[in-house]
Design a protein around this nucleic acid. Structure first.
Lengths: 313, 313
DNA sequence: ACTTTACATCAATAAAATCTATTGAATGAC
DNA sequence: GTCATTCAATAGATTTTATTGATGTAAAGT
């Protein structure tokens, strides 16, 4: 049994296809086929059921794949240990970010980071929280920026900042005359929300403490971006909630529609999350430091109440 | 990096000698030397400081060795998974036993076990608790039978039985006339004890609740076996405590010297202990079942108070 | 029936791991 | 100071292994 063989097995398990797995492993298909056969012979079991299309794992194959992932991860950590010893911060690093954070946070720290850590080859992907968790667990992401807490025992977090929700209220709305908001003021039926899949929508619903979000009124508007929500609100179609950082980018004319909550302000917790195995921890810590550095200038300490980003059932 | 290379590194780290490590790995010394050099080149670090005699690990080398042990363990578990799937119980299994358990317990279950699990190649070693813990942690033992609790976070246990302490009291002793004993009756200064290194001695001292065992009286007798202690007690040199199973082997003439404790009887907890990684768990469970089976006929459920086998400081 | 897709098989080759034999450095004995 | 001895490194030969490109085969799609 070799680490190479285990990597081939993982590739086939992932792509459910020998040919594709071979390409991704930068070898020819016979090479991969033969190595996997060799491993199957050595263990005297079948890892894959080749009669099914697409190829399926056998029962024992599933267990072996899980253990193989374990082994390959632990093997990768050797390089991590060496890098750490050398103080070397570099290599490929795959970072996921949720869409409601990207436009405001990414421009704030990205330049700083890539200038400081020139040897890190950062690959950033915008993904939903759901996808991020999947990819963190199976190793396709090294870390991600998302709203927490997540209640996933395989994932650890480092909190980056707490971002209060801010009301955006058109002058036709009765709340426009209030100086500040309380949670009790908020009516989910008047709220313009992001599309399904955005955990920001879950947070807002949780903030409103609606037992069953399916029971919302008939008239609803959902959109994929805060820009659209703001325009809809400007048209008097309802109010909306924005994350604090987003309010910094508003046009002057729009700022008068903003209403902060009273303390403790409802807020979302934005964290750097990563697999509990703590692979590439040096880079994760470098990211944390860079982001914390820039965020301190933008968000002062506030008295906040954290709203969960997880959808109720 | 290959698993073979990691195994070679572990062998050198253990033996602090390339030649011996090569022998134990069943390869020639140049083979091992070159593979280790290759790994060092690949990682661009030195794992061993060859200028020191005997060979020493470098700082980074130590970290790598620890991780290598991790990886090799996880790799071994693949075979475990396969065995489990096939219901195969076999292969080499190294079991440690503490000396105060061996003579009574081993004959009770050994025959049953090797008859039932003919494919297990059982290697049994009699060792002190201290050595057992070391060898469990570094993988030189697969499991062991010892007195618990041990308070070692790397080690898990499955309790096998609770074995009461039984007083063995000569007719010249004033306690001889008591029908039963209480802990308060026991005076550590009158007690014949096993040599240092036996955890049974620690248990007895803990039982007596002596704050500082160094303050014992001048006259002390310590010996390496219960047989000697019994003979010394017969000579009127003091009383002793025996583990219950040992009392079953006494000559008829000696049985009259036995005095049980009142409930809750002080007892030692004997467990099957193993590394938390749970390697070879099928065999460990097979052992547990076999031993539990035979022990049920020998030790009825009793009202006991567990005495710790760990020496006070 | 023909094409496409996908994995297995085979023979050739490139790469590697391992071996035997030898060297060189360090240590200790006389 | 010379001479064994020990121990790891090195060199060269050999064997083993991984990989490749070409080919075969079975199944699914058209």
């Amino acid at each position: 049994m070799t680490i190479t063989q285990l990597k081939y097995v993982l590739a086939v398990a992932e792509h459910q296809n020998f040919t594709k797995a071979a390409e991704k492993s930068f070898v020819t298909q016979p090479t991969l086929s033969m190595q996997i056969q060799k491993l199957e012979d050595e263990l005297d079991i079948l890892i894959f059921d080749r009669s099914k299309k697409p190829i399926q794992l056998t029962d024992i194959g599933l267990k072996i794949v899980n253990q193989a992932r374990n082994i390959v991860n632990e093997a990768d950590r050797i390089q991590d240990i060496v890098d750490q010893q050398k103080g070397f911060i570099g290599g490929e690093f795959k970072l996921g970010i949720i869409p409601t954070v990207t436009p405001t946070l990414l421009p704030m720290f990205l330049n700083n980071f890539i200038k400081k850590y020139t040897k890190v080859n950062l690959k950033i992907e915008e993904l939903t929280t759901e996808t991020i968790i999947e990819k963190l667990v199976d190793g396709h992401l090294d870390a991600a920026i998302a709203a927490t807490p997540l209640e996933n025992e395989l994932i650890k977090k480092r909190v980056l900042y707490y971002e209060p929700f801010v009301g955006y209220i058109n002058e036709n709305d009765k709340l426009f005359n209030n100086k500040s908001l309380t949670i009790e003021d908020i009516d989910i039926d008047d709220m313009l929300l992001l599309d399904d899949g955005h955990c920001f929508k879950n947070s807002v619903i949780n903030l409103c403490r609606v037992a069953n979000p399916a029971e919302r009124n008939s008239f609803q508007l959902e959109s994929g971006s805060f820009e659209t929500l703001i325009k809809l609100a400007n048209e008097g179609l309802g109010m909306t909630l924005l994350p604090y950082l987003h309010t910094l980018d508003l046009k002057n004319a729009e700022e008068k529609y903003l209403r902060e909550f009273e303390d403790p302000k409802p807020a979302r917790e934005i964290s750097l999350i990563f697999h509990k195995s703590e692979l590439k921890m040096q880079i994760i810590e470098a990211l944390q430091q860079t982001i914390s550095g820039v965020i301190k200038g933008a968000i002062a300490f506030q008295n906040v109440e954290i709203i969960s980003p997880i959808a109720n059932k």
